[in-house]
Each structure stands twice: as structure tokens, then as C-alpha cells.
Write a protein that binds this DNA or RNA. Sequence first.
DNA 1: CGACACTTTGAAGACGATCAACGCCGGTGG
DNA 2: CCACCGGCGTTGATCGTCTTCAAAGTGTCG
Lengths: 249, 249
Amino acid sequence: MSATHPGPEKLQNIPLFTGIDAGLRERLLAEGRIRQVTDQANLFVQGDQVHSFFILLDGTVQLFRESPDGHEKTIDLLHHGQTLGASEIMDACATYRAHARSVGNTAVLEYSAGKLKEIARQNGSVALNLLAEMADQAHQAELEAEHQAKMSAAQLVACFMQRLCILFDYNPAGFDLPYSKTLIASRLGLEIETFSRTLHKLRDNGMVITGNHVEIRDLDALSDYVCESCSISRECLTHQKLARKVQGS
Amino acid sequence: MSATHPGPEKLQNIPLFTGIDAGLRERLLAEGRIRQVTDQANLFVQGDQVHSFFILLDGTVQLFRESPDGHEKTIDLLHHGQTLGASEIMDACATYRAHARSVGNTAVLEYSAGKLKEIARQNGSVALNLLAEMADQAHQAELEAEHQAKMSAAQLVACFMQRLCILFDYNPAGFDLPYSKTLIASRLGLEIETFSRTLHKLRDNGMVITGNHVEIRDLDALSDYVCESCSISRECLTHQKLARKVQGS
DNA sequence: CGACACTTTGAAGACGATCAACGCCGGTGG
DNA sequence: CCACCGGCGTTGATCGTCTTCAAAGTGTCG
């Protein structure tokens, strides 16, 4: 499953370039530089001068921040079609606000910051797509904050598992975790020990985890559990589902 | 201090309209409808069809979500020049994702959703300003999530107080809280009891609260305390300071 | 086989939420 | 003028949850 040669299909279905003329899209794609990135490599480092904008073609990228006391908090895990660096460029803030590190081999399309602005200025559709993407990013981040503030560890994990199923089209009845448990725990803002213990507690909610394998026995009960104290988890799930459908069309 | 008649100065210094020709700005302002809003009135309700976009002219608006179990979580408190509804409109999501309720008398400039899109499409500068605003919104929300995940109640409160000083240009040596404690607690995702107790504990960190009055004795020590486990609180503070300066110019 | 990263498990402790009671204040109505 | 009420804030006691520290188990790869 290495990403040394992203097929041409990886250049399709990029949300940023949807709804624009095919010829123009080709030209825009050609203006970016395709980069193969090995495991654990930094695309950029928190505090660096903003130089590039990235579109993720293949693989996974971990977006995370480092605090003075050494702790790492994973902000998000990104996949095909998602972008990095847009908000930094648009915010006219000179430095990256987080680290971006590849998880496994990945491929990205890289644009210079200036080039992105130029493209956005010259092409209204791309600018609108960019706006939609940033709106969604803001929305997801707000949800995230609400989750962190109000949900228990068990609810966070359950919510995460459900989103995994939607994102990767897994069968809830049985699938394998796509990341290490350490990475997931970091993504959820939990200590690895807490995460490990929580996985067992969820057995009572119809979710059985054995090693790397997850079985969700009762999806509805789990959904109720997740949504109980979260204003729009359910809405959020369907929204993501929708986004995926749109992206696939 | 009522907001029944926002002076014309309130129509200036709106970030969304900075950097555009004065004549055009006048026209854009004229296309919006000025609305006076009384205390505790809803600008929109979570789940409503998205109909309008708002620019806050005067007063404070509480943005909050309601969960099935009845709890309210305040997402943000907005002031002059900030906007509401942009991300919903751009996200092509049909409903508001939160409630917006006035805190005290306020004045807003209202545009229909369609009108906003039209303006953004026809005016590149406004679109870029909108992008910058959404980028900042996403950034703040990410920070928020990190804070909720990693900071203690005392750090949240200390951080909040510092931002108050920057936002309202208060003298840290002594100022009064601009909101009720209940509202602040909700904003920070804390129970009112926890918030109340935390205020006293902060005495050890050089912050003395008596009733409604706050005295910060040692700003540097407090800043260190806040940033100890937060990756960019300090950066965040200077960023807001910067944003304010830019807005004032 | 041994080194090392990852994960699990146990025990202790810190922290915030919850429940309950009370004090304070402004307004309303008798 | 006083009694009552409701909203707001404080304080105490208790409980559940998550973190922390420590130790041991599992796996992979040289």
C-alpha cells in the first residue's frame, strides 16, 4: 500500500477543484508540484514561515501541536483531497500554527503560498471552494471543542469509531483500526492508558474491541449514547456522509 | 449604554469591508438592513433554515448550542464588527448550527443569504476578507478545542481574563467583568460552581477577584501559567492584539 | 535472542461535576 | 413598608472520571 506513485485517479475528486472547467483544472493541477513523502516526514513545522499550500493526494497526514511542556495534541488526521495551510495563508499570519507529519508514505500536491493566492484571486470558483472548505474546517473545529468540553472518554471513542466507518466505508460489524492506538488516543485528547481502558468499557455499549479489530454490535444504541450529551453529533455524522457523497460525484 | 441608535461610527471599521473603495462600501452598507435587537432576543435558532447573514454593529451576541439533554454550551461571545452565519452559508448547509442570542441591547446589519453570496461573488476584496475571517474563525476554534482538551479550569479562566484585557483594552491592574459569571462559565465550558471556586484559587497566581472586580497583580507569572500546557496561547494573544490593531486602522 | 516501540493493567491521586443548602439582591405585590 | 419570590452566586460534601506513576506483557525487526 505504498504511495510512491499516485495514479492519475488520485488527481481527480479533489474538492478544491470541483465545479471548474476540465481544461482549467488540468492547468491548475500542472502548476502544483507532486511530492512523495516517506513515513514520519514533516511537511511543515509549527512556527515555520508559511511557504506552501498542500493538497493531500494519498496516505494520511497528522496535524498536531506541541506545547512548551512537550505534550503533543493531534488536531486532525487528513486524507485524500484535504488541504493543509490554507487558513495560515488566508489569515495573513506568517507562520504555521501546527506541525504536519506524514503517517506512512504519502503523496501531496504542493503550491507556493503566492501561487495559491493568485489562483484564488483569478478563479472565483476555486475561491468559493476554498471558502466552503474553510467553513467546514471551522465547523468541525467548533464541534471538536464542544466534544472535548462535554463528552466522556467513552463517548469520544464511540463517536470516533462511527466516523471511521463513514469515512472509510467500513462495515461496522467488523473492521480493523487504520491507525495505531497511540495516534488515536492523541487525536481524541486522551492518554493512551485511558483510551485502552475505555475500549473495554465500551463492551457494555455493544462495541467489542479485540486487539486491532472492532465490532459494533448495536449501531443505533451506540449512536444514542454518543449523541446524548452532544448537540449535533448525529447531524455531524450525516453531514460528513453527505460531504463524502458530494465529493464522490 | 443602550444600543437603540448606533451612531454612524459603528458602520466604520467593519473588517469585512476593509480595503475596498469608500463609495462601494457605502453602497454595500446601504444594502443591509439595520436592526435593533433587545436583550435576550434570538437572531437565529439552531436548526432553523439559513436565511440571513449578520454583521454585529453594537452590543454582544452569545453563540451557543443546545444538546438533547438540555445543556447549553456557549461557543463564543461576539462584538462589534464580527459576523454571524457566514460559515453556514458558505458550507451550503441548510440550517444554522447554533443559537445566536443578544446579550443586552444590540444592533446588527442584516443581509439575506443570497445577497451575501452575490456580494462575495461580485467583489473579490470582500471574498478575500470573508476568507480571512473564516480562517481566523477556524483557527480560534482549533485553539479552543486544544484548550478544552489540555488546560485546567484555572488556566482556562486565566487565559480568558487575559483576552478580556486585550479585547476591551482593560487595565489588567483592575477592571470589572463585562458579563455575568454564569455566562463566562458557560463560555469556558465550566459549571458555575467550579468557576466560582476557581476564581479564588487563582489568588495564588496573582489574580484577585472580588465580586465583579478583577485585579491581575502579576501579568507575566499569569501568562507563564496559562501557556505552560498550551501550545500557542501566547501566540494567540499577540495574534488577537494584532488583529485589533489592523481593524483599528 | 535482544532491543525497542506499543499496549495493557494496577493503584493512587487530582480534578471537575453534581447535589444540596444558603446568602444576596432587585423586583413585585399585598 | 414588609413579605415573598426568582435569579444569581457561594460554599460544603461527595462521587465519578481521567491522569499519573509504575510494572509487566506483546509484538516486530535487527
